[in-house]
Write a protein that binds this DNA or RNA. Sequence first.
DNA 1: ATACATTGCTACGTTTTTAGTAGCAAGTGA
DNA 2: TCACTTGCTACTAAAAACGTAGCAATGTAT
Lengths: 115, 115
Amino acid sequence: MTEKRATPKLPKPGVPVRGSKSGQPIMVLFDLIGRRWSMGVLWNLSDGNRTFRDLQERCGSASPSVLNTRLKELRAAGLIYNADNGYALTEDGRQLFDRLEPLGDWAMDWVEKLR
Amino acid sequence: MTEKRATPKLPKPGVPVRGSKSGQPIMVLFDLIGRRWSMGVLWNLSDGNRTFRDLQERCGSASPSVLNTRLKELRAAGLIYNADNGYALTEDGRQLFDRLEPLGDWAMDWVEKLR
DNA sequence: ATACATTGCTACGTTTTTAGTAGCAAGTGA
DNA sequence: TCACTTGCTACTAAAAACGTAGCAATGTAT
């Protein structure tokens, strides 16, 4: 970096999430879903209820303890709930998934391009 | 019980992409961006180049070593690159951000609803 | 030039999180 | 009853992240 280093103006206040003061919504969300298997769980619940074991199988190396932690977090966040036959997306969870879904198609192109 | 436990280390066959054993593109992507600060970095690069320090400030508690790791990963994945005055999104990175952006508005509603 | 500040980044010890496995209580069915 | 499945907890080892110090290169003020 050989240029002058003027600190750019921040149009958006930068925000730490975890140990910090101002919880910018997107960062709060990233802090929740930016953990192992969080998005994978949402993804795998999108086409129907899944039991704990289902989710374990679909989230390959997720150990039961971690999976359980993720499920509790997502439930506390109101994104999933305990249905009779397993876990399911809430309304909010469905809405979030709808915004996650476009990543699927993009990921296919991207992975293919990497090879 | 603190007995010795066998550690068979079973090698399940599959595409070894970090923790993601399925090799499904979306899971490969989740494995990359589903880590601390990954999405935060992409988000904060969306409106202009950022220096290492900029990103540190905006990702509050991210230590330099972790931030550096994330930057390397994202660069290896072709999502960001080293520009003259800091880091910047590549074409792919921009495309990914475009699909992440809707989460911002949704997160605002969601956080507000939680209160 | 000299001194000091800033930046990108690495090193490394500590703390937190995740992996990996065992196992148990409750439910199901034979 | 027994065998089997399911949801989940317990626990240790391994991996990841934190937090701080510090270094080389460059910028800047005197």
